[in-house]
């Protein structure tokens, strides 16, 4: 058994919120550079170059990549041999978010009630998912999620007879509807299978996978590739103003499902696909 103070979690989450909003992962940067090099639309190329410059300014001047610094989504894989000491875990996470968003000059974008809509002024609460795993470590993923793209995400309860063609149609139609609203080039997270909520969660999780790490399941890998090609043929392009670079990647996660169902969730993320992983 290993004891971890919850204050360590708070401290890490604070730093991760700030870091995620100023720096993108290497795989995301690499895709952006490649897209800027290969884009054939002159306006599209100009926009991709601006996005590259934007990233550079964000890191150098410590100004968030995007003003929508998101709602903080936090995944924690907690080893079953870990003993937590200190505050209640959820409070520790929210304290980290509070400090990160306050001390890091990040925007407070969370309202306390979906209909009464009063801003909580510290970006809490986070959306928190915990999972118990083997071992004595905690893996934390912080993924601040912007809502321009979140709002364009969709869930489809397909019929088994719709099959793989139905899945392709669902994903491409979600991307088409999202268009310029989702700040393309996008990253498309897809969940297939499970139940209604399981498949939505898989789609979100898929966004935290690097964009250069295809699925380990051969047919899923093929599907990811084919969907990416289909999406980049839509012509939506950077900022939705036309071009070849509509998405950087399609990441798919799957799970067993019921004999009567084929749930498909499409969680769309913009080019500011933020996620930081730390193991403590």
């Amino acid at each position: 058994m290993r004891t971890i103070r919850t204050s360590v979690i708070t401290e890490n989450i604070k730093d991760m919120c700030i870091e995620a909003n100023h720096f993108l992962s290497e795989d995301m940067k690499e895709r952006l550079v490649r897209a800027a090099d290969n884009e054939t639309s002159p306006l599209g190329k100009k926009i991709l170059c601006q996005l590259k410059e934007n990233l550079q300014i964000a890191g150098e001047d410590m100004i968030p990549i995007c003003q929508d610094t998101g709602m903080a989504v936090v995944f924690m894989e907690i080893g079953q041999d870990v003993h937590l000491e200190g505050d209640f875990l959820e409070d520790a996470v929210n304290e980290g978010v509070r400090r990160g968003y306050t001390e890091g000059y990040l925007r407070k974008s969370v309202v306390k009630d979906p209909l009464l809509r009063e801003n909580t002024k510290d970006n809490t609460p986070a959306v928190i998912y915990t999972e118990i795993v083997p071992g004595d470590k905690i893996t934390i993923t912080v993924a601040p999620k912007g809502f321009g793209s979140e709002n364009m995400s969709r869930i489809f309860m397909l019929k088994p007879a719709d099959g793989i063609e139905g899945v392709k149609e669902a994903v491409v139609s979600a991307v088409r509807d999202a268009g310029p609203n989702a700040c393309p080039p996008m990253v498309v997270g897809v969940g297939i299978g499970g139940t209604f909520e399981k498949c939505a969660l898989m789609a979100k999780r898929a966004l935290t996978r690097p964009v250069d790490s295809p699925s380990s399941i051969p047919y899923v890998r093929e599907l990811e590739k084919e969907l990416l090609e289909m999406i980049n043929k839509t012509g939506i392009g950077p900022a939705g103003l036309g071009g070849d670079s509509t998405a950087f990647a399609v990441n798919i996660e799957t799970y067993p499902t019921h004999i009567a169902g084929l749930p498909v969730a499409v969680n769309i993320c913009c080019h500011v696909n933020r996620h930081i992983i730390r193991v403590i």
Binding site: L51, E53, A58, V272
Partner: peptide
């Protein structure tokens, strides 16, 4: 339209 997600650049 301004470019979405270019808030650091636009702030200049």
């Amino acid at each position: 339209a301004a470019v979405g997600g270019a808030g650091a650049l636009l702030s200049r």
